[in-house]
Design a protein around this nucleic acid. Structure first.
Lengths: 201, 201
DNA sequence: GTCTATAAGTAGATAGAC
DNA sequence: GTCTATCTACTTATAGAC
């Protein structure tokens, strides 16, 4: 039995929008159906339950993030270059999907075991290689000696935080007659500058 | 008519715990009642509705944050000293209440107008003075020339992000046999070090 | 596959006894 | 003030026609 790709995809896209804005508990199946332009019953026809629909969305979103991380950490490049890539690629991606951080952060808090096990399975290896590379470059005197994990956490925090409070940033930006996109675009070079200040020997 | 402070306070504390963990939509009045060790009907006796109870909690939490900001920005001190204080005080406070960041971030996203108007009324003035002070010290050559707002956003991001993904950090820390509290305590000096690197002329 | 109508379950809110 | 019992509304989920 072949599924109608069009309808299924429309449901999927609608669900992603609603779940990202309202979260699992706050979303309504009716709202998703309206957003998809179809009837509520069809949601259950394609995805048996609200939970299953949510899981389908989350898995797609999160596996994209994991793929992005794997990609960033598997390529051969120096540490500064790598941080440069992390900042550029993530801010560009988040500008296209500013709701993703809060969506993922909420799931981390509601369902930590699931996320931790995925991270352990698919990300930790790359993370370890990254840490090893940092220690190498530190010993070679290419970069200053710092705690690699703390730095990584800091960089991710600087990247993600403005998106987690996006509406507030937007409000503040509007008050200063600056498009929020400009603020976030500028941020790329600024964060990279910080990292260079921190790491340059 | 005098309210029974004990019961009201127990409801309030229980509601804070449940709302912070589950959010407005995810929380159940029954769960709050259980947590408070009283009956569901009493919740409505003290706070007319779920929404009103949530608002009471949020207002208390958020006004504490605003007070903290006002306090930090009103005291006379140099810029580096001020950043030092921001980092120390916020990490210490968040270690006591690690759920607050996500709680506030969610409300920022669900109810941005309310938060923006409070910020405009009570925080923007202090923020402006802070920016003025930064420009002064930059012109005097005490610190390097940087975008003050971007730096502030970065510092706040570095402070708050680990708490927003607390369960994940905890999981990773556990895997490395390190208490998450140690990781976050260490972070204070590390972030302050970053800021000095960024601002030292 | 898609719809309408409806069932079944849940959650917030209230009535009324004590 | 506090409880039990109940009401009402909403939401997910299903049955069944087309």
């Amino acid at each position: 039995m072949v599924k109608d790709k069009n309808t299924e995809q429309r449901i999927f896209d609608a669900a992603r929008i609603v779940f990202q804005q309202k979260g699992l508990a706050g979303a309504r199946m009716q709202e998703i159906a309206d957003e998809a332009g179809i009837n509520k019953a069809l949601l259950h026809y394609y995805y048996r339950s609200k939970e299953k629909l949510f899981e389908a969305i989350f898995n797609e979103v999160f596996s994209n993030i994991v793929l992005g991380l794997q990609n960033l950490f598997s390529k051969e490049m120096g540490i500064l270059e790598r941080f440069h890539a992390i900042v550029e690629i993530y801010i560009d991606n988040l500008l296209k999907n500013p709701h993703i951080p809060l969506f993922v952060i909420n799931e981390i808090n509601q369902n930590p075991e699931k996320i931790i096990s995925i991270l352990n399975d698919k990300v930790v290896i790359h993370m370890k290689n990254f840490l090893i590379q940092m220690y190498q470059e530190m010993n070679e005197g290419k970069i200053k000696k710092v705690d690699p994990f703390q730095l990584l956490m800091s960089v991710i925090g600087m990247i993600i935080f403005p998106f987690a409070v996006f509406p507030a940033i937007k409000g503040i930006a509007a008050k200063n007659q600056m498009p929020v996109e400009t603020f976030l675009q500028d941020r790329k070079q600024i964060i990279i500058g910080y990292i260079e200040n921190i790491l340059k020997p």
